[in-house]
Design a protein around this nucleic acid. Structure first.
Lengths: 223, 223
DNA sequence: CCAACTATGGAACGACATTCCATTCCGGCT
DNA sequence: AGCCGGAATGGAATGTCGTTCCATAGTTGG
């Protein structure tokens, strides 16, 4: 058969280019926006060409996460006392997740080794610096990591849900709050009581409060 | 056209039946095992019939989560001091996640209102009982919830990854550990140091340690 | 006994990830 | 220069899903 249809690209594709294009798509259209069709169009190529450079979608998503995670971790200012360092780290990660909610989904997929290792290492070093007993280093680091992952996951879910229904943040929160208020008061006493605060609350502050909770537990326990 | 092909079922489908069948599939084959084809076959019906009872896959997954979450939450023994109660709750949730790893994925999807509300309420009540200042009730509860969600997410990801590659838990952990050991020692000092402990560690104990970290932070802060 | 409604089951559709493959480009060898 | 083989490309084909459609069957109430 013939195949002389489209012209070939001048410069060849690179993994870098593909990952950048993927990140752009993810930021614009969320995780559902990352399709090989869209990616191929955005790179002016076919799907097959992308597979030459990247094994599959999972690897692509992980590479996108890793690209952003590694950059973000570099940008946190060093030379702070470990506790402040941990707070800075956590906030940097929060802001990252907030700016790129799809990272939550990316990290929860299996095979996200590298980005996870980066985050765990960054946290673990500071935990270690904090003077936590060796036997607790892992569980403390793991706790921080799981907490951050949990927040990331919720953020990703919320962002996706909001996008699918064209809601902005405040409408979304109001919807959740009013749904909670309609629940059975006997079975959901706490949720119902807290519902009113929901629309006004500050995610970032709550996140930091959670980190501080863990940190204060961490420094209180050795005593 | 005619359509007199298959015989009709004697008793009609119910949401309950569908959810039970879905849970069975999820437990056997993981989240990738829950397809409408498989579900329809297991219920001896067509996909269309299922859609009459349940709007879409997201609702199905959420219903499956909710079914298990609500049962599990009932089974935790009441009448303990709040702190012990929180520990019991957390362990019950951990065991639930461990037995049904797909719940992690289910909870992280948007629209998992009910199961989330149940868990948050159960946690929040005890946090409230603990005498935490009102202004902190939400952030404390939210922290616990996010932590649990993070653990659930990791568990789900690991289970899925392990299933896809036919690995048992110890092989999986050994693989991760040796991958971590092969990383650049300068850039991943902590991860590398901790890698050896990984295969031997006890998930459940680590999880509880994390909960205790948050709890001790919670009772230490008011002072 | 006949409308309206509730359900059913399976075929058809559309979106995707992934695979295939004919073709083209390029660097080294003679 | 001329040729060869591997590296890359791009787009068509494949297979799996979720979801929708629709012809049909029970069921119920007037």
């Amino acid at each position: 058969m013939k195949k002389a249809s489209g012209t070939r690209r001048d410069t060849s594709l690179s993994r870098e280019q593909i990952v950048s294009a993927a990140i752009a798509l993810l930021d614009e259209a969320g995780i559902q926006g990352l399709t090989y069709q869209a990616l191929a169009k955005s790179l002016a190529t076919g799907a097959g060409a992308i597979y030459w450079h990247i094994a599959n979608k999972s690897e692509l998503l992980t590479a996108a996460c890793d690209h952003i995670v590694s950059h973000r971790l570099l940008s946190v200012s060093p030379d702070l006392p470990p506790k402040d360092m941990l707070r800075s780290l956590a906030l940097e990660l929060f802001d990252m997740i907030d700016a790129h909610p799809w990272i939550g989904s990316g990290l929860m997929q299996g095979a996200a080794d590298m980005p996870m290792a980066r985050i765990i290492d960054a946290l673990g070093r500071q935990v270690s610096q904090l003077g936590v007993p060796h036997a607790m280093e892992w569980s403390a680091t793991s706790a921080l990591f799981s907490y951050i992952l949990g927040v990331a996951g919720q953020n990703a879910a919320n962002a996706q849900h909001a996008r699918q229904h064209n809601l902005d943040r405040s409408t979304f929160l109001n919807d959740v709050a009013s749904a909670w208020e309609r629940l059975d008061p006997a079975a959901f006493a706490f949720v119902q009581r807290i519902a009113r605060q929901l629309p006004a609350h500050d995610d970032r502050a709550d996140f930091l409060a959670g980190v501080d909770l863990i940190l204060s537990g961490l420094t209180a326990t050795p005593a």
